[in-house]
Simulated scan of single mutants.
Amino acid sequence: MRRVQIQAEPIALIAEQEALWRGDAGAGAVVTFIGLMRDFNAGVAVSQMTLEHYAGMTERVLTELANTAVNRWALRRLTLIHRVGVIIIQEPIVFIGVTAAHRREAFDACEFLIDELKTRAPLWKKEQTTQGARWVTTHT
């Protein structure tokens, strides 16, 4: 199973994690990464942010990353979900989950996915700060 999704709705973290391993007796490792909206960036308080994306292209880039990970590591399942729209403090922005027979492949693939997503996905972030709204790079 390989699933890539862009959504405005909150991510159902527990259900997504369980769907990775449930029913797959060959899975020996589940590794997940959850990126959260925090209350600061670059030394400035942030109250919320709006993430915009290039529809079609964002899904294509994330699918390419997922395909690369599946081809590079012996993964059993992979889920990559990214939020768009208005996101408030402490809400998950991104969920990456992978399963493999062994932990090293799962850890390496998960790290690859978040690192590449941060540099390649066409996403734009507008933060609401104490100093007003500002557009910032998502590639950090």
Score class of each variant (00 low, 15 high):
residue 48 Q to G: 00
residue 134 R to E: 08
residue 20 L to S: 07
residue 120 R to C: 07
residue 75 L to Y: 06
residue 106 A to S: 09
residue 20 L to M: 03
residue 105 E to I: 04
residue 123 L to T: 00
residue 5 Q to C: 13
residue 106 A to N: 10
residue 23 G to Q: 02
residue 110 C to W: 10
residue 53 H to V: 03
residue 32 T to R: 07
residue 93 I to F: 04
residue 64 E to D: 12
residue 20 L to I: 01
residue 85 G to A: 15
residue 107 F to Q: 07
residue 90 Q to K: 14
residue 89 I to Y: 05
residue 135 W to V: 04
residue 92 P to M: 07
residue 100 A to R: 07
residue 124 W to A: 08
residue 137 T to G: 12
residue 43 G to K: 12
residue 51 L to F: 12
residue 54 Y to C: 11
residue 47 S to R: 15
residue 118 K to C: 05
residue 24 D to H: 15
residue 106 A to W: 01
residue 70 V to K: 10
residue 139 H to P: 04
residue 27 A to M: 03
residue 4 V to A: 00
residue 95 F to C: 02
residue 108 D to H: 11
residue 72 R to I: 08
residue 7 Q to G: 02
residue 101 A to W: 00
residue 33 F to H: 03
residue 44 V to T: 15
residue 107 F to R: 03
residue 135 W to S: 08
residue 3 R to M: 00
residue 11 I to H: 04
residue 95 F to V: 01
residue 113 L to A: 08
residue 140 T to R: 14
residue 138 T to S: 15
residue 45 A to M: 11
residue 78 L to Y: 04
residue 34 I to A: 10
residue 37 M to P: 03
residue 16 E to W: 01
residue 131 Q to T: 12
residue 45 A to N: 09
residue 6 I to Q: 03
residue 58 T to C: 15
residue 72 R to F: 09
residue 17 Q to R: 14
residue 111 E to K: 11
residue 71 N to Q: 15
residue 46 V to S: 06
residue 72 R to N: 15
residue 33 F to G: 00
residue 115 D to V: 06
residue 19 A to C: 10
residue 96 I to C: 02
residue 75 L to C: 01
residue 37 M to R: 10
residue 64 E to F: 01
residue 79 T to C: 09
residue 104 R to K: 15
residue 65 L to R: 04
residue 129 T to Q: 01
residue 24 D to L: 13
residue 132 G to E: 13
residue 134 R to H: 05
residue 31 V to E: 00
residue 75 L to H: 11
residue 92 P to L: 05
residue 110 C to K: 00
residue 78 L to Q: 06
residue 111 E to Y: 11
residue 98 V to K: 01
residue 84 V to R: 02
residue 56 G to D: 06
residue 21 W to S: 13
residue 26 G to N: 14
residue 89 I to N: 01
residue 139 H to F: 08
residue 46 V to I: 13
residue 11 I to W: 02
residue 100 A to Q: 00
residue 46 V to E: 06
residue 23 G to H: 12
residue 111 E to G: 11
residue 4 V to I: 14
residue 70 V to P: 06
residue 19 A to G: 08
residue 83 R to G: 02
residue 83 R to L: 01
residue 28 G to Y: 07
residue 2 R to E: 10
residue 70 V to N: 02
residue 46 V to K: 05
residue 64 E to I: 00
residue 41 N to T: 09
residue 137 T to D: 14
residue 117 L to C: 10
residue 91 E to Q: 15
residue 89 I to C: 11
residue 18 E to G: 11
residue 103 R to F: 08
residue 75 L to K: 00
residue 140 T to H: 14
residue 1 M to F: 05
residue 20 L to E: 03
residue 131 Q to R: 13
residue 88 I to H: 14
residue 85 G to R: 09
residue 13 L to Y: 04
residue 125 K to E: 09
residue 43 G to S: 13
residue 103 R to H: 09
residue 11 I to C: 03
residue 25 A to Y: 06
residue 30 V to A: 00
residue 124 W to C: 05
residue 119 T to K: 15
residue 4 V to P: 01
residue 30 V to E: 05
residue 72 R to Q: 15
residue 71 N to C: 05
residue 111 E to L: 09
residue 40 F to E: 14
residue 27 A to K: 00
residue 54 Y to E: 08
residue 140 T to G: 14
residue 125 K to A: 10
residue 44 V to G: 07
residue 127 E to K: 08
residue 12 A to C: 02
residue 59 E to P: 06
residue 1 M to L: 10
residue 65 L to W: 03
residue 91 E to T: 09
residue 124 W to I: 07
residue 88 I to L: 12
residue 124 W to N: 06
residue 70 V to H: 10
residue 59 E to D: 14
residue 88 I to Y: 12
residue 17 Q to A: 12
residue 66 A to H: 05
residue 61 V to N: 09
